[in-house]
Structures are given as C-alpha cells and as structure tokens.
Amino acid sequence: MALDPQAKALLDMVYRVGAPRFHEQDVHQARHSFEKLQFALRPEAPAVASVTDVPIPRAHVRDGVIMARLYRPLVAKPDAVLPLVFYFHGGGWCVGNIPSYDVLCRELANHSGCAVLSVDYCLAPEHPFPGAVDDALQAVTWSLANAVLLGIDAARFAFAGDSAGGTLSTVTALQLRNSGGPQAALQMLIYPCTDILSQRPSRRTYANGYFLDTESLAWFFEKYLPDTADWTDWRASPILAKRFDGLPPATFIIAGCDPLSDDCRAYAEVLREAGVAVTVHEFEGMVHGFFTLGKFFRQAAEAVELTGKALGTALAP
C-alpha cells in the first residue's frame, strides 16, 4: 500500500533531520520525545464541561495509586449521570501519559457525549508485565464500584485505546469475560498490538521507514516483557487467548502502512469466527500513531470523530 503524501512528508522530515528513534534512546529520552511529538502535532484543546483528576487505589495500599483523569463533555449538565469510556493510552507500555492524551480525550468526550476516564497505568521498564494489565483491570473495577462518586452509569461503559492501550482494552475485556464480570458495550481498538511474536506479512512490508520500525518494536517488547516466557502469555498477545466468544462488539481503526495492520486484521477475524460483532475501518496510507496527530493529518480528525460517534452510539440509553 502506498503512503499517503502527508504521511510521507512526516516520515521524510523525521528521517531527514535524523531524529533518534525509540530504540536509540534511553527510556526517559523516549518519553520526552513522544510527549514533544504529541504536543507539537495534536489539535487545539476543545472546551469540555469539567476535568477532574481521580486517584484510584491499587489493590495493595502500599503500592500507591493509579492516577486517572475524568472528562465530562461540554453538553453535559452538572448532575447528569453519564456512560463512561475507559481510555488507555498508547506508547508501547513504556511511554505516554495523561497530558499527552489530554486533547484526544476531550475530543472523544465531546464527540461521544460520554464521560471519558484516561488511565495513567504504570509503565515499563520500572513496572514490567503484567503491571499495566493489573492497573487497567483495577481502574475499571474500582471505577464501576464507585460510579456514584464519579457521576457515571456503571451499567454503560466501553473500552478504548490506541496501540498498547488497544491491547489493554482487549485484555481487560477478556479478563472480565473470564471472571463473569460486567460487560462493556464496545471495544474501540485503534491499531492494537495483538501478537508479540507475529510473522505476518505487514511486519516485513513495513519493517523500516514507516515510523514504528522493527527495532523500536523490539525495544518496547523487551522492556515490557523482560522474561521472554511472557511473550506467549495471552495477556501480552491476546490473539493467543483460548476462546473469544462472549466478548463485547469490537470496532477497529487500522493504519494501512503499519507493521501491526495484519495482526489487527487477524484479531478481528478470530473475534468474527467466535460470533463477536466486528467493524473495521482502515485508513489507507496512514502510519502507526496517526490517530493523535490531528494538526498534521486530516484523517486523524476523521478517525477521532468516527471513534467518538461509535462510542456514543454503543453507549446510548
């Protein structure tokens, strides 16, 4: 698939100036570089009704709290009880944070008419697998149990996330299904990583020069999963789960020129085969990461609006 001209322009700029890639930096440099990119190329922040920081206690008090940020859409009345979207940010389980995703979560709240909870799960290598998985599930469990405090309807919730955050969305849905817990109305999966050890063609076709290089993928995987035995754990590679029936409907956003694109399609297919309702939207010529870069890509604005409306429809009364 040919690159979109705007995607090519971005890649030409990145590679021309010799910007260091993730695997060429230490983790602190990589986090700073990721944040700079998000701040430089994200749209202007839209107004919302309110923004509230929410400390969520971890399972053990000694482990402190998971910080989250709750956004209520501009149209929401102060006393309205809203459906909730849990948003898990991308960044290979190693980079990314609430400030980097502030604009996106504001947009999703306004487009969907729902509250959005952005979850600042713990990052590797300081907190390797399954730290992020545990935080994601704890954030969901606690929030639903404290729905009155948050002003949300515990019976109406959805998961959304990009890249590593999309993976956390799939895994959390699987965990809730396995435990007989409450079911989300939708899994909104933006180019998730579904198979760490994948050898599908897109991994080779887009291995180098398409933003998410093979070396950078390996850098993320090695930091998140220092024990290689965990690479085949379904909580890291959800396509390896034993069964996929009984899961919430799933909507995928796929970037056409993404090394993970075939893995996304493969996961969509196993869900379909298990009887799960699946919708796939592919943005031709886009690269991994485009979703949050709305100042640079018009397709990002289209994808964000599509995402917000899909969430709003799924969570309508």
Rank of each mutant, 00 (worst) to 15 (best):
D26Y: 07
R16M: 13
P238A: 03
K36W: 11
P249A: 09
A266W: 00
P43E: 10
A136Q: 06
Y71S: 10
S216F: 00
G64S: 12
P43T: 09
Q199C: 04
R243E: 14
V54W: 02
D4M: 02
L311I: 15
Q38P: 01
A236F: 01
L176E: 02
R156I: 01
P125E: 11
H28N: 11
A314G: 11
P238H: 09
T141L: 09
G181M: 06
R16D: 14
C122N: 13
A218M: 08
V270G: 04
F252E: 01
F22L: 09
I66G: 13
G92H: 12
S261L: 06
I190S: 07
V148I: 11
Q25I: 01
F220M: 09
P78V: 13
P46T: 11
I152Q: 01
L174Q: 15
S163P: 01
D245W: 07
E305S: 14
P248E: 12
A274Q: 01
W93E: 09
L117F: 09
A155Q: 15
T52G: 00
G151T: 04
G209N: 02
V65P: 09
F129A: 05
E44F: 09
P20N: 06
R106A: 15
S100R: 06
K36V: 14
K8M: 08
A132V: 03
G91M: 07
S118W: 03
P55C: 06
Y206D: 09
G96V: 07
R156D: 05
D135G: 10
P78N: 12
G246T: 01
G256L: 05
L186M: 12
G166N: 03
F22K: 07
V119Q: 13
I56W: 00
D63F: 10
P201L: 06
T167Y: 00
